[in-house]
């Protein structure tokens, strides 16, 4: 009996659903236009004062949505121009330049993907070491991007109806005579979002690609020293601001949490020559904290560098 009444309920539900959809008010055109304006304002985070809060009192602003659509449509055809324009940028450090390769830009009803791939180029007269190092960075970047695309494709295949997106981008973080650092960002948004930063460094003095473990003399236990420092900074920040939460192993109920840095932890140099350690989103803190960073003052490790 229960099944029968369930079935009847289902039928009624289906009819209500359908009748309600049919009688629902359509969004009027003028409202729709103001909706777009409100959306643009929201993403531009314009501070709207109370007295001019009614968006229909504002002149229509160029809709970002239109801009988005244009970008999607035009980019594939503009590849050659973009690459050309990138080449006109000043040469980095006199030796390395970064060229953007727009490899792929696709969007469909439920998914979109925008892959921006950087490639390092070094001048002809560079040392063999530097040429090799830039090739190595390129290979690493390639591998990381291919992996991200494959992971995203898996997600799309598994959940074709779910909205998801994936994007990669990059930034040159450091550009001095001594040092070159490239940051590759991989941003996923499936049912959720995740951000990964990957740093690639070249020591221009030696012309070699460098990771964290290459920086210090072998008898300096940087993992232990830096982990202690990171933990101390986590505690200090949580004490100062109750909105800040870090997950520290053995200190709360989260399970897991931070115990020590990875020997090859992501890092970059700040302008004062301090070392900034970067953690992945969700690795040591809840998602809203983003990718947490901790600065290790240079006096702590300076004497122990290679």
């Amino acid at each position: 009996m229960r099944h029968m009444s369930d079935r009847m309920d289902d039928q009624i539900d289906a009819r209500i659903r359908e009748t309600l959809q049919r009688s629902a008010p359509q969004i009027p055109e003028d409202v729709s236009a103001r909706f777009d304006d409100a959306l643009s304002e929201a993403v531009e985070q314009e501070k709207i004062h109370k007295w001019k809060r009614k968006w229909w009192q504002k002149p229509a602003v160029a809709s970002l949505i239109t801009a988005c659509l244009l970008v999607f449509v035009l980019l594939p055809n503009m590849n050659a121009n973009i690459s050309y324009a990138m080449q006109e940028l000043p040469v980095i450090g006199g030796l390395i330049r970064v060229v953007t390769v727009y490899k792929q830009e696709t969007s469909s009803e439920h998914h979109f993907q925008e892959v921006t791939k950087p490639q390092l180029e070094v001048s002809e007269e560079s040392s063999q070491e530097l040429k090799d190092a830039s090739k190595l960075v390129n290979a690493n970047v390639d591998a990381r991007i291919n992996q991200a695309m494959a992971e995203f494709q898996k997600e799309v295949d598994a959940y074709p109806e779910a909205y998801s997106g994936m994007m990669t981008d990059y930034e040159v973080v450091t550009n001095t005579d001594q040092w070159f650092t490239l940051r590759l960002m991989v941003y996923y948004s499936a049912a959720s979002s995740n951000t990964e930063y990957h740093y690639y460094h070249i020591d221009k003095q030696t012309g070699e690609m460098v990771t964290l473990s290459d920086l210090f003399v072998s008898d300096y236990d940087y993992v232990e020293k830096f982990s202690k420092e990171v933990k101390k900074q986590m505690h200090d920040r949580m004490k100062k601001d109750e909105n800040i939460t870090y997950m520290i192993a053995g200190e709360d109920d989260f399970g897991g949490g931070f115990s020590a840095i990875d020997p090859e932890q992501n890092f970059y140099w700040d302008e004062e020559g301090n070392l900034v350690l970067v953690f992945d989103k969700y690795a040591v803190a809840p998602g809203y904290m983003g990718c947490p960073e901790f600065t290790i003052a240079r006096d702590l490790f300076e004497k122990h560098m290679n």
Partner: peptide, 28 residues
């Protein structure tokens, strides 16, 4: 996190939901 991508993603998601968002808002 790249701001411009966040914008694009957010805009595209909201665009898909314009009609149902309006329906809910006007209904309430």
């Amino acid at each position: 996190m790249p701001e411009n991508w966040k914008k694009k993603w957010f805009c595209s998601k909201v665009q898909e939901l314009k009609a149902p968002m309006w329906g809910l808002a006007i209904g309430l």
